[in-house]
Amino acid sequence: MQVNHSHILLDACCVLNFCASGNFLGILKSISAEVVVTTVVQEYELKTLQRLKQEENEGAIQFEEAIEQGLLIVVDFESEQEEESYVNYAAILGDDGESATCAIAVHRQWAIATDDKRAIAFIQKEAPYLQILSTPEIIKHWSEAAGLDLSEISNVLNTIRLKGRYLPAKTHPLRSWWEAALK
């Protein structure tokens, strides 16, 4: 997986999936760019992760550890233009996390990682020059970099499916890889 930008902004859905996997730190370490979340996503995700059952709080712990270790950088709006785009995007997308992520990605020309169909369609229209990555692409890259065997990959994907409640769309290019690994 080649990241064509200096930074990659993780949307809330990807953060949840990676934390659900139990391998958040390893996944971040495998990415060859600075990995970033917006303050909006950080605040929302931490609350979501902390609300999960006690056994699943490992995700919140790894999320905080990633920030402490510098594997995950938290950024906020730096200009009126970013804030204005955020407000405009929120009116279109209807979600604060995706809107903040898209606004900062567009203005700073950073790659974005999201699984949200509306956000993907919006970015493709608004900023077609930005690279868009997804949970399956990043998980596949990480699993290859970490040298996971098929049973380990299957366990991770099942955990994401159950705890993260995520399954790639039927039209996703890596859906067949995902399904094959689950068997």
Score class of each variant (00 low, 15 high):
88 N>A: 13
53 K>E: 15
174 L>N: 11
130 L>P: 08
49 L>Q: 02
141 H>C: 06
57 N>E: 09
29 K>P: 09
104 I>E: 01
29 K>Q: 14
28 L>Y: 03
11 D>V: 05
66 A>Y: 02
52 L>G: 10
41 V>H: 00
15 V>D: 00
24 F>G: 01
93 L>W: 04
2 Q>F: 11
112 I>A: 08
50 Q>T: 06
31 I>S: 03
54 Q>D: 11
157 L>S: 05
68 E>S: 15
158 N>K: 12
96 D>W: 05
144 E>Y: 08
146 A>Y: 01
21 S>M: 06
75 V>G: 04
105 A>E: 02
160 I>V: 15
146 A>D: 08
15 V>Y: 02
13 C>E: 03
139 I>L: 14
111 A>C: 08
80 E>Y: 04
50 Q>I: 12
137 E>P: 11
31 I>A: 06
19 C>K: 03
30 S>N: 12
8 I>K: 01
35 V>P: 00
17 N>V: 10
166 Y>K: 07
12 A>C: 12
182 L>Y: 06
150 L>T: 14
2 Q>S: 15
175 R>M: 10
76 D>F: 07
68 E>G: 14
181 A>V: 03
37 V>Y: 02
144 E>D: 15
48 T>Q: 10
76 D>K: 04
27 I>F: 02
50 Q>L: 13
36 V>H: 02
121 A>L: 07
94 G>Q: 12
119 A>K: 03
54 Q>T: 14
68 E>Q: 15
55 E>G: 09
42 Q>V: 13
95 D>Y: 07
76 D>L: 14
140 K>Q: 12
93 L>N: 04
14 C>K: 02
181 A>P: 03
77 F>K: 00
156 V>T: 14
33 A>G: 11
92 I>H: 02
101 T>A: 13
110 W>A: 06
162 L>Q: 11
182 L>K: 08
82 E>F: 10
33 A>T: 10
171 T>V: 07
94 G>M: 07
155 N>C: 13
153 I>N: 04
13 C>R: 00
99 S>W: 01
64 E>P: 01
87 V>A: 14
143 S>D: 05
56 E>M: 15
133 L>K: 04
100 A>N: 00
142 W>Y: 14
53 K>L: 12
79 S>E: 06
84 E>N: 07
145 A>V: 11
11 D>H: 04
107 H>Q: 06
8 I>N: 00
68 E>I: 11
54 Q>A: 15
8 I>A: 05
170 K>W: 12
128 P>V: 06
41 V>P: 02
49 L>Y: 02
82 E>M: 08
80 E>I: 09
143 S>A: 11
80 E>D: 12
